[in-house]
Structure formats: structure tokens, C-alpha cells
Design a protein around this nucleic acid. Sequence first.
DNA 1: CTGTTAGCGCTTTCAT
DNA 2: ATGAAAGCGCTAACAG
Lengths: 334, 334
Amino acid sequence: MKKSITLKELAKLLKVSVSTVSKALNDSHEISESTKRKVEEAAKLHNYKPNRAALNLKSGKTNTIGVVLPSIKNFFLARALRGIESVIANTDYNIVISITNESYEKEVKSVEALTNGMVDGLIISVSEETQILQDFSHLHDIPDDIHMIMFDRVESTITCDKVLVDDYDAISKTVRDLKFKGRNKIVLASTISKLSVGKQRTKGYIDSIKDKHAPILIEGPEDFIEVKLNKLLRDEDIDTIIALDEEASLASFRAGKKNNLLEKGKLFLVGYAGKTMSEHLTPSLTTIDQHGKKVGRTSAKLLLERFKRPNKDIEQVIVDSTLRERDTTTLKKS
Amino acid sequence: MKKSITLKELAKLLKVSVSTVSKALNDSHEISESTKRKVEEAAKLHNYKPNRAALNLKSGKTNTIGVVLPSIKNFFLARALRGIESVIANTDYNIVISITNESYEKEVKSVEALTNGMVDGLIISVSEETQILQDFSHLHDIPDDIHMIMFDRVESTITCDKVLVDDYDAISKTVRDLKFKGRNKIVLASTISKLSVGKQRTKGYIDSIKDKHAPILIEGPEDFIEVKLNKLLRDEDIDTIIALDEEASLASFRAGKKNNLLEKGKLFLVGYAGKTMSEHLTPSLTTIDQHGKKVGRTSAKLLLERFKRPNKDIEQVIVDSTLRERDTTTLKKS
DNA sequence: CTGTTAGCGCTTTCAT
DNA sequence: ATGAAAGCGCTAACAG
């Protein structure tokens, strides 16, 4: 940990003016090669680092992009983050991340901290609490020279570029597929019924199941789902569960296992869950892959384009999901 | 997205001086209640937000803490992050996170971006590549008014507060315990042999196994471990695997399952892995819990203390691990 | 109680 | 080729 030095101090040491030093370090053509070298040497020697705050103040830019995520445990959001990073890495922007842990208050704090001059742009997926409270004033208040991209959990009253997942379609398609495979009684399990995405998925289920039987919704926290499902699997002839998030998927999985239904292929289970987890369950879990990385990449690209053309038309991109068939939707051969 | 306004503009609107506005907004005693109200109203109305860059430049502080993590997938690091957040949440500091994805280059970039006036302090766990290259100059170059805490993957040549996990002891204890349980041939699997923590754990294994048999080390990427282990389990009478990280744990798990050794309790497996994953494997995985959250909390506390007393003695805290016994170290009853 | 002014560290005209 | 000076937005002496 060396001592830092300012441009001014450097100038004094070299007995030249600050402007000379500044220009030399910025490789200006109006500085002689010899002084340039001298300045650069001294800068390195004294560990000169330009002061960010001064730079930002002067330029009105920060070259930093803020990413606000509700959670880090969430495999989809983690993938999306990777996607964002992968495209920003090729630019000279830096990324700072802020995790809200699904809290409205933390989200407000994060957004304010970031948008008060820490970042030039924001990529955000809002917290669960924010979607429940339906209070988006902190997002409306963002200075309009800070560009914002919303992804996955978006809000229609906010005008900005958005990246969505085909939640409604993914589930409708899944239900249709399951019906085609002869599944007769399909229940839905969800811990995210308060989220926009959860609602869309549930709607997809309801709309496409209703010609077969009345929708059976199990919504609540992970433990509740497990208990409820345990009972339901014992008492009724459920043959399929669709789980809308990882917690619901695991709760469903445990319930299915406990009742010895999954191994035999008597019970089908389609869930949302990370790849590693899905593949290591026994039997392995069939999932709906939301292509988190692509969602992240798309979001980052939209932001970069917006930087270049601040007045271009607002865009809304939808990324399709893919069904990954594994053992929980496979009939036992033996 | 409203238009932002500066203090100066606000002053002009209200026909008062900038200092009056500034003082009013900072609730100075030398401003009358009436003007205070007027100013606050106007500020709210015009969506005034103080410019962070100006504030930082003026005060020389940022009220922001940077957290640099090598990975976000890593359950231990994710827990540590939660720990950090939980203590910082009660302060008026903000957190910005930067993920290096185990890359030296990204780490250098992140550290520079953060320490050039974006943060007042840094909590860092270095990347794998950095530990391989053994190049820590970017950390030595940090201005000495920015305090740094290293955790888990630390570097001895850097003088700063550190939080470590009892890697050596945790494994020695585990080996001793396994020997006591009558385990005769214990192999070690690791994808992190390049990391300081991996080396410590391996050392713990070697030192405590050598009176029983020659150490058997399987080190390399996840796939390599799986292949190697598959062969080893077939050809030799291995009865126990200790896996030093989640990838090695899962590779070991797959190999054990493939050879039908885990269910019968013929093969014991102790690994490092997240709780959710461990509990959902069949059989469930016995793990060494590093108390990531506590590590994070401790790191954050050390940093806050260091802010208060910049010259206090350097501290090094070690957080003990705990063995979580599950089914992969349980003999089959039936 | 309110206003004037200097200055945080840097870049950038505009002189010289 | 180099330097002087203004100014980014804000705070805090210091004056009035």
C-alpha cells in the first residue's frame, strides 16, 4: 500500500505545470516526447492514480454500469450476471453490482446510491418486495441522463428498454406437451406467485389446463408447498407437477420422493432450477431453461446501444425458454 | 425518469445563494426554518439529487465499500457476501461488488476501478489465477488511505487484516475422525490444488494420513477427477473420499454412485458443498461447513473497526469449520 | 440569517 | 512546447 500522489504534487516535483502533466499523461500531441517520458516515469514511480471523483465531476461520466439484482442465489440471475459481464468485458466500462436480497428498502438505497453519479447506466431486475408493494417511484426518479434497462422482472409503467422471458408461452407449451404425453392431472407449485414472472407462468398454466381440469395451484413458501404436496400426492391421483422456481422444484422433488412416485415415473416433475442441481438429483430433474446468460447479454447490449443512440426507439426483447428433458419426465423402462 | 437539477440551478430558481441552499439541505442551524422548507420543497419538486462525484471530491470520502469476489457460483463466497452485507446494512456505507471470475486481469481491473476513488475500503478474496501467478502488485499499489481486508484466499506478503478458515485443521480433524471410524484407505480429490486454501487442506490430509498409508491425491479439473476416481474405485479398495471443493465433491459423488458404492455405505464421502445441494443428493452429502456468513461478517466488522482506528494493530482472525454429518458417512443399517 | 469565495483534482481552452 | 486560469457541483470558512 503505497502513498498516493496528486497531479498537482507530481507537477511540483517535476517543476512543470499541472496542465503539462495532465497532457503528458493523456498523451497529448502538444507535449514533447522527452517530457512525456519524464512525466510517465515519475507517475509510475510515485504510483500516481487519477482521482476518479475529479474525473467524473469534470466529465460528467463515470464509465461505470450498475447492475441491481434481487438475489445472488438465484441461478437464473447469476447466469444473467455472467451474460452482462461477458459483453461489458469487451468495453471500457466497469461493472458494479448491488444485491437487494429481495428487499424494497435495499433496492431504493442501491438505486439511489448508484444513480447519484456513480454509474452512467443501470441494468435492473426488481426485488420481490418491490413488485408486491408496486412502488416504483425510485425508478421513475432516476435522472434521465442515466439509461436504464429492466430485465425479467419488469414494470410496464416504466418507459425503458426491457428484456423478458417468454414465461406465459413456456408454461403453456409445457402443459400442452404434458397433455400430449397423456398426463391427466397437472398441479402447479410456486413460491413466486407475487412476482410478475410467476403470475405470467401461472396464467400460462391456467389458460392451457382449463379444458382438461380445474387448475390446482399450490402457492406459498417452500415448506408449505412440500407439506401440501405430500398430502395431495397421497390423497389424489396427481400425475404431474410443474414447479415455477427452484424452491418449489425442490419442495416438489422431496414430496415426490417421499411418496416414492418419482423413481417409478408415476409422477412427472418439470421445474425451474439450475443445471448442476437438476443433473445431480436422483432422478434428474426436467427443467425449463430460461437462457439466463442470453438474457444478460441482451440487456447489456441494449444498454450499450442506448449509450450510443440515446434517442432511439425503446426496445423490448423476449428470450425464449427451452425444455430440458431429464428423468423426472421419463417413463421407467423396466 | 425526471430531469435532474443542480444546486446552483436550484439557487437561481429560488433567488438565493448556493450556500444557502446547501446549508438548508444539510439542515444547518444557521438557516431559518422558512427558507429551509422552501428549499426542501423546491428540491423535492425538481428532483434534486446531490452529485456524488462532487461530494466525493470535496470530502475525499465515498461512503462506499468494495467487495471483490472471484466467483458468485461458489456457495461459500456467496454466503460470505451475505455476511458482509448483513453488517454493512446497519451502517451508512454502500456496497459495490465486483466479480473477477477467477481471472487475474479482471481482478486487476476491478481493484483499480474501485480503489481509484470509488470506495473507502475493500474486502477481497483473490482469484485463482492471481494465486497461481503469485502477482499481487495491484494490491500493493492500493493507496494507503484505502483500507483492505482479505479473506479466505489471502496472501502473506500483504499487510492487512485477514479472515481465514481453519483449512489445515479442518481436514486433519476429519481424517483423524475417519480413521477412528475404521476407514482404511482415504483418497483426496481436489480441483483447487492451486489455491492457498486447497494447499492447506491437502497438507492437513497428507500430514494426518501418512502414518496409515501413502497419500493418494487426485488433483485436476472436475471431469478428470471423475474419470480417475471411476478407475480407482474399481481397481483399488478405496473406502473413503475427501473432496476439497464443490466440483470435486460432485465428481466424487458421481463416481461413487456409478460404482454403486455410496448407497451401501461401502464408500464414505466428505466434501465441501452448499447446504441445499448436499441435502438433496441421494444419499445426502456429509460436508465441512466453513461458516461463510461468519467469515463475511467478521471481515466487514474488521473493516469498520479499521475505519474507526486506522492505526490499530493488524488482526488475523481464523473461523473454525464444522463437520455436518449426513448419509455419505453413515453405514447402511439394513 | 444569508452571501461571497476558495478549493477538492482534474481537463481544457486560451495565451505565451 | 509549456503555462495560466476557468470550471465541473458541492461544502465550509469567513464576511456581512
